[in-house]
Simulated assay, not measured.
Amino acid sequence: MSNPKQDVCCGAIVLYGKQRFLVIAVRGGHCLIGPITVQRVPRHRADVILSGYPDACDEIVRCGDALSVPQWLLTDTEAKVSKRGMRQVISGTSTEFAARQVELLRPGTYRCALARGYRPGDKGRKIGGAPHAE
């Protein structure tokens, strides 16, 4: 931004370098921003279709590629996204970050913890009885 006292709010569409980004969250002097791109056929689970501002035509916000950058590096474009659109983007971002935390766990831990709890040495099969009965 040319003026360091000019604030960028949540839902603003800004320029970072030459690319357009959507401001997802603002905390202190840093902003969490997601890149805005055109829709592609293979979509990621965290892609949200952008709606709620006049120039939105077949554009998505890639919530999985969110960056945290200093606020003074952003240039405001005076375009804003509606509250409904921002709710979808924030929901997509939080879902993506929660899914990444689950993916960091070792294989089998999440399923066992939900079903009946993890037991050291448990191979996941019932001893005795029919093999399909659980």
Rank of each mutant, 00 (worst) to 15 (best):
G34N: 03
Y118A: 11
G64F: 06
S82F: 15
A12I: 00
A66G: 09
C9E: 14
Q101K: 13
I36L: 13
A46F: 00
S68G: 01
R119P: 02
C63N: 00
L50D: 11
E103G: 00
L67A: 04
E78I: 15
Y118G: 06
M86L: 14
D122Q: 13
D58L: 14
I24R: 05
C9R: 15
T109V: 14
F21P: 06
R87C: 05
I33Q: 02
G128L: 02
A99L: 09
F21Q: 06
C63F: 07
M86T: 11
S91N: 11
P42N: 08
P4G: 04
C9L: 07
A115T: 12
V69R: 01
K83S: 11
E59H: 08
Q71D: 07
A133G: 04
V61L: 04
A130V: 07
G64T: 07
V23D: 00
T37Y: 10
A113E: 00
S82Q: 12
K123P: 10
E96C: 15
R116S: 06
I33M: 06
G29T: 13
K126P: 05
P54I: 15
G124F: 13
A98W: 10
S91D: 11
K123N: 05
L114W: 10
G92I: 06
C112Q: 10
A12K: 03
C31S: 12
R27N: 15
T95D: 10
I36R: 04
V61W: 08
R106S: 12
E103I: 01
I24N: 04
I33E: 05
T37H: 06
V26L: 03
V89H: 09
C10Y: 05
I127S: 11
Q101W: 10
C31L: 10
L22V: 01
R45N: 09
G108T: 01
D7T: 11
D76E: 11
A56F: 14
N3I: 09
P120Q: 05
P120G: 01
L114V: 07
L73M: 12
L74G: 03
S94V: 04
I24W: 01
K80H: 15
R116P: 06
A56K: 13
E134Y: 08
C31R: 01
R40T: 14
L74W: 02
S91R: 11
R125I: 08
I60T: 14
Y118Q: 02
S68K: 09
R43E: 15
K126Q: 03
Q88I: 09
V69Y: 06
A133W: 12
A130I: 02
Q88C: 14
R84T: 12
C9N: 10
Q71T: 04
S2I: 07
Y118P: 01
A98E: 15
S94T: 05
R87W: 00
H30I: 00
K18C: 02
C112V: 02
